[in-house]
C-alpha cells in the first residue's frame, strides 16, 4: 500500500515547522520569549497588514516552540516537563535609582579633615573578664559606669557630691545632645532634598513662629509692648475685583453664579401644582 500521497496531503494541511530568518532570532527560554531583530517588510505591512502580522507571529512562535522542544526533558507525575535554562535577558529596573543621601554635619567635617571610617570588629576580647564581648549593642559598648558598686571621688571636687547622680546626668546630656544633632541633620537633609537652603528654611520657620507668638495674646498682640525697630507684621490682604471692568465680563460672571444658585433652588418642581394639573388632565 502506498501511503506517501496520503501522508503528503496530510502534511500539506499544516505549515512547515522549518522557518528561515535572515537574522537568527534570539531567545530567552526562561521567560519563554523570542526577540526578532529582522526588518519588517513595510510594503506588506501597508497592503496586507493583518495577514502579514499573523504570519510573522506564527513563524516566530514556531521558532520558539522548536527551541523549547530541544530542551532536556524530565518525566514527572504531571507529565513531561522541559527544564528551562537560567534567564539571560536582564529586565530594566522598575524604580529610578535612589538619590544620594545628603551628608550629615559629621560626615562633612570628617571629609574636610580627612578622617577615615574604621570598621570595628563586632566582638572584642575583654582582658578583664577574659571573654569576647560585643563592641556595641546588647551587653556591649563601654561598661556603664553608673552601675559600678564603687566610684572614686576625685580630690578636686566636693566630697559630698553624688558621683552617681553626676554620671547619670552627664550621660543624659550626651544622649540629648546627640538626639538634637540627629534632628538637625534630618531637617537639613529634607531641606536639601527639596533643593532649598537649610539656613533659609530655618529662618523662615523662625519668622513664622515669631508671627504666631506675637498674635497669641488675648488682644491678638494689639496691646503688646513693641520692641524698638520692630517691623510691622504683615496680615492677610483681601483682594477685590476692580470697580470698573468690561461690563460684559462682569455680567457673564454674575450670570454664571446665578445659574449655580437658581439651578439649585430657583426652579424647583412645585409638587402640589403638578399633582393638581395631573388630576385635571385625567378628568
Amino acid at each position: 500500500m502506498d501511503v506517501s500521497s496520503a501522508l503528503e496531503a496530510h502534511q500539506n494541511k499544516f505549515k512547515s515547522i522549518q522557518v528561515e530568518k535572515l537574522v537568527p532570532v534570539e531567545f530567552d527560554l526562561n521567560l519563554l520569549a523570542a526577540f526578532d531583530s529582522n526588518a519588517i517588510d513595510a510594503q506588506k505591512l501597508s497592503s496586507k497588514k493583518e495577514e502579514y502580522l499573523k504570519g510573522l507571529n506564527r513563524d516566530n512562535a514556531q521558532l520558539l516552540f522548536n527551541e523549547i522542544f530541544k530542551l532536556p526533558v524530565e518525566s514527572t507525575d504531571a507529565g513531561l516537563l522541559a527544564k528551562l535554562p537560567s534567564q539571560t535577558y536582564i529586565l530594566p529596573r522598575e524604580k529610578p535609582l535612589p538619590k544620594e543621601k545628603p551628608m550629615t554635619r559629621w560626615e562633612k567635617f570628617a571629609k574636610t579633615k580627612g578622617i577615615q571610617k574604621h570598621k570595628k570588629e563586632r566582638m572584642v576580647f575583654d582582658e578583664a573578664t577574659g571573654k569576647y564581648t560585643p563592641t556595641w549593642g546588647y551587653a556591649g559598648g563601654k561598661k556603664d559606669t553608673t552601675k559600678d558598686w564603687l566610684l572614686e571621688v576625685p580630690s578636686n571636687v566636693d566630697p559630698m557630691e553624688d558621683q552617681y547622680a553626676k554620671k547619670r546626668e552627664e550621660k543624659k546630656e550626651r544622649v540629648d545632645k546627640n538626639k538634637k544633632r540627629q534632628k538637625r541633620n534630618e531637617e537639613e537633609a529634607s531641606a536639601t532634598n527639596k533643593g532649598m537652603d537649610p539656613r533659609q528654611v530655618k529662618k523662615k520657620q523662625l519668622q513664622e513662629a515669631i508671627a504666631v507668638t506675637k498674635q497669641s495674646t488675648a488682644s491678638y498682640g494689639r496691646f503688646d509692648k513693641k520692641i524698638e525697630g520692630e517691623q510691622k507684621m504683615k496680615g492677610m490682604k483681601r483682594q477685590f475685583a476692580p470697580n470698573i471692568t468690561d461690563g460684559k465680563v462682569e455680567k457673564q460672571a454674575t450670570l454664571d453664579i446665578l445659574n449655580k444658585v437658581v439651578g439649585k433652588n430657583g426652579e424647583v418642581l412645585n409638587v402640589t401644582k403638578a399633582v393638581r394639573q395631573h388630576k385635571k388632565a385625567r378628568k
Binding site: 475685583a241 455680567k251 454674575t254 453664579i257 446665578l258 444658585v261 437658581v262 433652588n265 426652579e267
Partner: peptide, 29 residues
C-alpha cells in the same frame, strides 16, 4: 464701593431667588 465677591453674590442671589426665582436674570441681563 466695590463689586461683590463670588460668595457675597451667591448669598444675595439665594435670598433674591426666594422671591423672584430665576427672574434674577432679568435684573442682570
Amino acid at each position: 464701593m466695590r463689586p461683590l465677591t463670588e460668595e457675597e453674590t451667591k448669598t444675595l442671589f439665594e435670598k433674591l431667588a426666594k422671591y423672584i426665582g430665576s427672574n434674577i436674570k432679568h435684573l442682570i441681563d
